[in-house]
Each structure stands twice: as structure tokens, then as C-alpha cells.
Design a protein around this nucleic acid. Structure first.
Lengths: 198, 198, 198, 198
DNA sequence: AATGAATGAGTATTCATTCAT
DNA sequence: AATGAATGAATACTCATTCAT
């Protein structure tokens, strides 16, 4: 039997996506050229089109795939119940870990939003909002429970998310701080930032 | 043909810079074309070159000018003494205000760093580090004074800066929250995030 | 759109080189535009780049190819031994014939030297010097044999070469004088110019 | 009294012509830009137009001025009578001296002919032909007098002129050979090339 | 699945020249 | 006589994409 039916099967397609991710991360979507991408993968420019629709579709696909995985993983993690503070710590831990481990996907999903076509943009923004809603709900629950003092959950959530997401611009797995250390540090900060001080 | 009646050199240069800022903010440096820029200002493409050296130099000039102003303004504000907490609030207030009032300059000074030539990049990065050092010092002073609990001032500063800077991506002067409200909210969060909880 | 029916890669490349040679000969390298070249070959400007690296590389390639052929052909001719006078006549005959038959290559290899990049220039100059050395050696041999009176072989060689090369600026294959007639005339002049008159 | 009436009086105009000559000699007419020229003279591009009509007119003027002077000087020299051989030596001496002393004018008057507009080209070609006629006449006289053996005076003249003119591409006033040495050498060659050998 | 060749639209930048000041 | 600002046309070269093979 040959290749499993249904599997894309193409090692080349995967290589293109990997290289595309890397190049967009490094140079930006506009600055990355398909020539570069082809060279990276060892193909001629024209051959790329056996594996992608257009440059724009490649970008969307990379971001969409990432957002799907991100939302699924978050859902998995937040399924478990706990106190609002526990939930917040869980969220922070998840977010930082994901941002540290998938630096590139995460980064381009922020920074290249404006390079998406309007249709694609709409799709991704909706997913991002769903993600934000999870944190907003945690903050809201914690406030109602009296554990947090959050007057504006949305704005507060934006602040926390920005703080956490910044990690992917400077984190170095071989650096001074381990992922766990960063998670602990940022967990404390997040909790401190919203905790009720009676 | 010669000069359009009523036009003036320095007015044109200013208009180019203003339009350039706007276009880079909206589309990104790579995506902005000099054709667009010229059209925006009401000039032929060639005429742009009476007022800029190159596209790259325009970008650098915009960022450099902003960084100079930012550092000068920060120095002015931080000159006044006070408790570490007061200093932190002062920093947050300054940073948020500046980011809200000069959204575009601030945004491109983050997002277009990678579009700078290596030389220009080096210059700007140095200035950014000087800016960060101010916050790092506040955190360090506060920790030594026993007011803050900050195990890693640099990483903590990065977190706070990321949180505050996020403001320029969503703040709307005509929106639900005033600048003052956002400042207050983020001041509390920042202080909460680092405050000593005995 | 794809490839025009009937077109072929290497045929196109050859057509570009032929037209490039012609255009550079007629207008000079600086004055020739790739627009002209593309039009001459029946392509879009962009398509040229499937067959050349840059305009500069095209120039170098044309000159280099010519110089290679020239040196190889000269070596072939000068292989045969003979008296210095016979050798000189052989050289003149070869040089004039080549200059008359490959007018364009020969002309641009002189006149466009200064349009070559420094690296390319160095390569070609070296080849030209090798060519000149062949004549210089003939003059030196003839002088030592007592057949010629040449006090400064290099300067004399320059003079003879300049005289012979001038042919390609006025020779007309359909004109009054045949190639053979010109060869004979210039052979006599060259021999007369250097012959020992006791 | 101020400036003498009728004199161009402009030191700037002269500087432009001098720098233009130099630049065209070094880079070629097409490759020289008015920006370069202006910079060389210490002016803005626009100011050039107070002193020249157009770039093309500058070229023509440089060449025309040179040709006028050349023809006048030649007439002066050839006025004196003498044997054909003396006349030939006088011509060679004159030509070489002029080519060595006014390298740049001479060079561009050959090499930039094709950059002249058709009208300007026609004017210059006529002058060049007049110049050539002087040598052709010497050769013809010498042949009729039995001193020379020249079957085709025009082609022979072209050969001699090419040989002599080559001097301006390699002569270095600070070099191994003096002008006088080169003149003597090339005089002998020219005479040898055409002398009757009974 | 891969490629060479082609394309139309576009890139930043330069050109010689003009003209009001 | 000099300049700053403007211009239209041009420059070499690159872009993402197409298509016959």
C-alpha cells in the first residue's frame, strides 16, 4: 500500500509551511518573497504553487492553523475547575508556555494581522476575541467572587495579554530564566495586578 | 514645470513626514509605497526626493525624532523625586499618555524596528534600552526600599512595558474610557503587580 | 501568462545576446536600455531576467566570450613557426580579419571597458594584455634577429594595434576594398613601420 | 570700468566646461550626470542652466571648440613648405603633441561622436574630414613625388591616424617616455610605413 | 510534482530640465 | 547668477503568478 489516503502526504508542503513561518517571523509577510521561500525549500518559485494557493493563502493558513490549535489547547486546559486565582494562574501558565514554545506562530498571528485580506482578517479576529473572552470571563468570575478588583475586565484583560505576549519577543530558551521561572514571575504579577486588596 | 504657486518647502517636508507616519502606521513600512506617499501629499514621486534622502532614511528619521522627544519628555517627568510608588505611577502615567497621544509614532517605533538598516537599528535600540533602564531603576529602587517585590527587575519591566504599550493598539480617544481612566487603571495594575505583600 | 508557443529557452538567450551586442555597438552600453533590448527580442522587460543576471553581467559576458574566442583563435594561428616578418604578417592578417568579421564584439571590447565593474574590468584587462604580449614578442624576436628596428616593443605594439583596430570603425564588407586588400595594405605598412633599414 | 564688454567673463562657465570635459573623459557622456557636474563645480544642478543650454549643447560646444582650435593649429603648422617626408613628420609631430597635451578634448572628440545629435554630428564629422584631408594630401603629394608608396591614401591615412591617436589612451606625461621620444618613434614608424622601397 | 519561461504591474530611485523667487 | 522645489519620463530590477511541458 502506498501513502495513507487522506493524508496530505507531502513532505514538501510541510517544509514550505515551516520555512514560510520562519521567514515571515524574521522578515515580515510583506518583506518575505516567494523567491526566498522557494530557495529555502530547494524549489523553483513556480513549484511552490503545487503546494500553496497564493502567498496570502499561505499566511492565512499558517495563522488559522495556529489559532485552531491555540483555542483547542486552551479549552483543554481551562476545562478543569478551580478558584478564580487558580484559573488565572492556569491561564497565564498556558499562555506563556504556548508563547514561548511556539514563538513564531504566535508572533506572526499578532503582527501580520494587517496583512490579511479583509475576509481572512475577520475570521482570525473572531478567533482572537474568543480567546480573549476566556480571560475576560476569569476576571469577571473572580471579581464577582470578591477575589479580584477589576473595574473593566476587557481593558484589564488586554493589559495582561499584552504583558504575557511580550514574552515571545525576548524569551530565549537558552537564556538566564527558564520557562517555568518566567511563568511563575508573570503569574504573580498578573495575580497581584488584579487581586483584591481590602 | 516649476513650483506650484503657494507651496512652500518646509511645509511640504512636514506634510511628507506626517503622511509617511500615517501610511507606515496603517500599512507598514514595507507595504507603503512612495507612490502612495506622493499621492497623499499631492506631489510627483520624484519630488519626494527634494525632501527625503531615501525611504529608509524617512523611516529612521521618523523613529529617531520620536525617540529623541520621548526620552527628553521622560527625563523631564522623572526629574521630580518621590517615593518609588509615586515614581512608578508617574512613569506609567507618562508612558500611557504618550502612547495614547502619539499612537502612530509609538507604534511604528516598535513594529518597524526590523525594517531599519542595521546601523539605524543599532541607534534606535540603544535609545530604547535607555528608556527601559529608567523603569528598571524605579523597580530596583522600590525593591531596595522594601516597597516592591521584584525578583527580576528587567523581566518585570519588560512585562509592564508590554502591558502599557499595548494601549496604542486599541485606545480610541472617542471611546468608552478616557485617557485618565486608562492611566489610573494601568497605574493600579502596575503597582499591584510589583507591590510588596507582606 | 505562460510561454509563447514555439519559443525556446536557449534560442531566446541567444537572441538576447545578439541583440544586446548590436545595441551596445550602436548606442553604447550606458545608452542602451533594457526596454530597447526587450523590444528588440520581442519580450517583456521582466522576461529578460530569465536569461541574464544583470545588464552589467550581460556586458561582461559578451566581452568575456569574445576575448576567450579571440585568444584561442590567435593561439591557433601563431602556433605555426616562421620568420619574424612572416609572424608579423600573420598577426596583422589575423587581427584585421577578426576585427572585420566581428566588428561589434571587437568594438565594444575596447570602447565599453570603462563601463565594466572593477572586477570585470580586471579580468578583461588581463586578457587584453595577454593578447598584446603576443605582438610584443614578435617584435622583440624580430629585433633580436636583426629583421626589425624596434627600440620600444611595447609602444610600437600599441601603435600597430591601434592602427589595425581602427579598421572596425570604417570597414564596410560591401565597400571599395576587400578584406584581403586591407590586410595586404596594413601588413605592408606594419612591416614597413618596423623593418630594419640598413 | 567693470568687466570687458563681450567677454563671457564668467569664471563659473569656464569651471563648468573644465569639469565637464574631465567628467565626460572619465565616465563618458551618457554616464556623466549633471548632478555630478554641478557638485564638481560647487553649484546646484539648476544653476548650471545659467551657463549651458543643455547637456547635449555642452558636449557639442566642447567638441566644436576643440575642433576649431585643432584645425587652426594644424593650418598654422602645415603652412610651412618642405619635402613630403618633412611634411609627414611635421604632421605626426603636431598630431601626437596635440593628443598628448589635450588628451581629454581629443579623446571625447572621437569617443562621444555617437552621443551627438544628428545636426551636431554632421558639423563635427565635416571638420574631422577636413583634418584627415590634410594628411591624405601629404600622402598623395609624397606618392606623386615618388617618396612614398601609397596605393590608397585614404585608408593609409586612417591607419596612421588611428596609430597616432591611440597615444592619448596610454600616454602618461610622468611616464617612461617623453613626448618627444614618442613623437620621434611614431614619426619613424609613419615614415617607414609609407616610404618608397625601391 | 517540478520546472523554465513568460508576464503585467510594480518597486525605489535618477534623469535632465523648468521656473518662481 | 543662484537656488529650492517641482516635474514627467525614464532607469534597472523585482514581484507574485501562470502555463506548457
Amino acid at each position: 500500500m502506498g501513502r495513507k489516503a487522506g493524508s496530505s502526504g507531502s513532505r514538501t508542503a510541510a517544509a514550505i509551511r515551516k520555512a514560510g513561518l520562519e521567514l515571515i517571523f524574521r522578515h515580515g509577510y510583506e518583506a518575505m518573497t516567494l523567491r526566498q521561500l522557494a530557495a529555502e525549500v530547494g524549489l523553483q518559485q513556480a513549484s511552490l504553487y503545487n503546494h500553496i494557493q497564493t502567498k496570502q493563502d499561505l499566511l492565512f493558513e499558517l495563522i488559522k492553523t495556529h489559532m485552531d490549535a491555540l483555542l483547542a489547547a486552551l479549552a483543554e486546559v481551562m476545562r478543569y475547575s478551580g478558584t478564580p486565582t487558580e484559573q488565572l494562574r492556569r491561564f497565564v501558565d498556558f499562555h506563556v508556555t504556548y508563547h514561548v514554545e511556539r514563538k513564531q506562530e504566535v508572533f506572526i498571528s499578532y503582527s501580520e494581522l494587517r496583512s490579511l485580506s479583509p475576509d481572512h482578517y475577520a475570521v482570525v479576529i473572531k478567533m482572537r476575541e474568543a480567546y480573549e473572552q476566556v480571560l475576560i470571563k476569569v476576571l469577571r468570575d473572580g471579581t464577582m467572587a470578591g477575589d479580584f478588583t477589576v473595574s473593566d475586565p476587557k481593558i484589564t484583560a488586554y493589559g495582561i495579554l499584552a504583558m504575557l505576549s511580550g514574552v515571545c519577543t525576548w524569551f530565549d530558551p537558552a537564556g538566564r530564566l527558564s520557562r517555568q521561572a518566567v511563568c511563575a514571575l508573570y503569574s504573580d504579577m498578573a495575580v497581584g495586578a488584579v487581586a483584591f486588596r481590602g
